[in-house]
Simulated assay, not measured.
Amino acid sequence: MLHLVTIGALDAVVGEITITTHRAKIVDFTQPYIESGLVVVAPIRKMKSSAFAFLRPFTPMMWFVTSMFFLVVGTVVWILERRTNDDFRGPARRQVVTIIWFSFSTLFSTHRESIVSTLGRLVLIIWLFVVLILNSSYTASLTSILTVEQLTSSVKGIESLLASNDPIGFQRGSFAENYLTEELNIRRSRLVPLKSLKEYEKALKDGPANGGVAAIIDERAYMELFLETRCEFSIVGREFTKNGWGFGFPKESPLAIDTSNAILKLSENGELQRIRDKWITRSACSSEGAKQSVDRLELRRFSGLYLLIGVACFFALLCYLTRMVYHFSRHSNRNCEASSCLRSFLFFVNKKEGEDNHKPKARQKEKCCCKVLMHEDRSCNDSSVCVHIENNATS
């Protein structure tokens, strides 16, 4: 029809003509009188209630990574606190239980272990902030799941259609065919042309297994009319184009300007919206798309938080290791072999802070008392220790 305008066979084209870049090169369009981008319509079904509905706010990967970070943070805090905090010392079995208990008790801020080191407090503050965000997101998502009528579809939007090989329906003769093949690179063999709303309904009900389609891509205004009395289908995903409908005139036609001014006046006084509300009525069925199932919280949405706590843990461990190496170098034998130095370093890290400062004093006392025994010098202050050594020597 627009081609007939260009050759002078028609003076204008009036109707639901979608304004596209290619068409705008050959004719002059008026201001759009309605916005109508492409949307995806697919069959939907009500989601059955489950005893494990509390797991649905997070995806499986989100649950796994979150659990791992609880254990990682607990282990990091245990390493940072072990030398200075008696709550994190003891038998190996008790330490493992302490790590697990401390890790998951931070979810409710009920951990009974006190944190005394600066690095440990730094890691814990950042982790509690991450837990606060996770708690709030989980609560909001679970509330939506339990209170909103849940509808689900195997098709989630244009992205899921691009990732699959299912057939897709479209309106025969519309610009959607070229858009899907040229812009979205969908194979033409997947596209099924349909020409009426009844064909839309039949193709969606049959499904891909019976020669139908998985979804239909068409303009929103058409789909709103289609969904008025068909509650088993719904718009899924987002509107992925922004087009409008307008009237077409020959290039430089004064009628295009006059008609655009009339459309703008109707839009400004609200008459255009009243016309749309009257003839394109949104019934209960056509608005079901607002009740789609709440998107599950994915890992990528919280990647920044996990990166933050990961960097904090790495920084704290690096500072702790640097400090331990520095203190160990002051107390160790510099001529030891690599294997013996490593064992000595691990033994040094495992000791409670302050133990290495008492042993030299004890050796000094013992040496003093040995001198007392050998030279019979009674100037030593610790006479009880000297007498104990003398008695042992006599016996």
Rank of each mutant, 00 (worst) to 15 (best):
R188C: 02
W63Q: 13
F108R: 11
V311D: 05
T75H: 05
Y179K: 02
T118Y: 00
L122Q: 14
A262P: 00
L204D: 04
N335C: 02
H388V: 12
V213Q: 06
Y33F: 15
V97K: 10
L266K: 10
R363L: 15
V385W: 12
V155Y: 07
K251W: 03
F315D: 06
D295G: 14
T229E: 13
N392I: 05
M324A: 12
L55G: 00
K352I: 07
T106P: 00
L184P: 05
A92I: 12
C336K: 08
T84W: 04
F108Q: 10
S189D: 14
L2G: 09
L255M: 10
M62K: 07
V13M: 02
C380P: 02
G211A: 09
P208C: 06
A163R: 15
I217K: 05
N261E: 10
I7P: 00
V372L: 02
I79S: 07
T18C: 04
C336A: 15
E224A: 01
T147K: 14
V130Y: 05
V311W: 15
G212H: 05
Q31N: 02
G8T: 11
R188K: 15
R56S: 04
G289H: 07
V14K: 01
D356C: 02
S303L: 15
N357S: 13
Y200R: 01
D377A: 04
F175M: 07
S160H: 09
S67Q: 11
E298M: 11
H3K: 15
E252N: 15
K365G: 01
R94Q: 13
A312T: 12
A316Q: 12
M62H: 15
F175A: 11
D206Q: 09
R274Q: 08
